[in-house]
Design a protein around this nucleic acid. Structure first.
Lengths: 110, 110
DNA sequence: GTTGGTATCTTGTTAAACAAGGTAGGTGGG
DNA sequence: CCCACCTACCTTGTTTAACAAGATACCAAC
């Protein structure tokens, strides 16, 4: 179903920023949390590239930390620019969500 | 602002299907209607490619018709497959909208 | 020592929005 | 008559993102 993956464009990035805002998280954890929130089947092949991109844009910063069990984890936290970007994203999301809902539900002309 | 144009990915296609479902429309008209609904700054360079794509996928059909004033218009209407695709899109949209809202608003762990 | 879960990252493919630009019909003003 | 303007169509090239697939590796338990 590629409709879904098109709908996720740009959305995932914002969601990841939002989750990290709550508390620092590592990649693998993000895939679990997104799933728990209802965004199922988000593969790691989507998440890691986003994390690298966000890091390159200085919206997040990461540092390795040992795990109580298993390989080391790279925890990411938001930068100031990251908080701004998230606010910006939330605003865009809100200006799109309303119109799209009203159009899809239909029936309203003019 | 490219965040916005990423967020529109996949969304515009569904919106166009939804508007055409209400009544047949032509390209130029769609750009006006989207704007009226709150989706501003959608250029014709976005709309016409979508219409061509939808037509190629047999979700819509178009036919030329004279205009009371100005060049001829190409009115599009939904096919059966188009109705299905729209229902499908609406479903996907609904499964994404809720989770994204809850993640952005934040505060909920586990 | 090998299996399996946790964890990271990379490459290549595909698909979509949009800017920019090109074509042309009709109408009204000069 | 012709020229400018609005309506209306379509195309090309650029950029960006999700994702599948796969590579790597640590650790624990058996």
């Amino acid at each position: 179903m590629k409709t879904r993956s098109q709908l996720l464009k740009g959305v995932l990035e914002g969601c990841i920023l939002a989750i990290i805002r709550e508390e620092p998280a590592y990649g693998y954890e993000l895939s679990v949390k997104l799933h728990e929130h209802g965004l199922t089947n988000i593969s790691e092949g989507s998440i890691y590239p986003i994390l690298l991109r966000l890091q390159k844009e200085h919206l997040i910063e990461g540092h390795m930390q040992p795990s109580p069990s298993g390989p080391r984890r790279k925890y990411y936290h938001l930068t100031d620019a990251g908080h701004e970007a998230l606010a910006n994203f939330a605003e865009h999301w809100n200006t799109i969500k309303g119109p799209v809902d009203s159009i899809i539900k239909g029936g309203r002309e003019q």
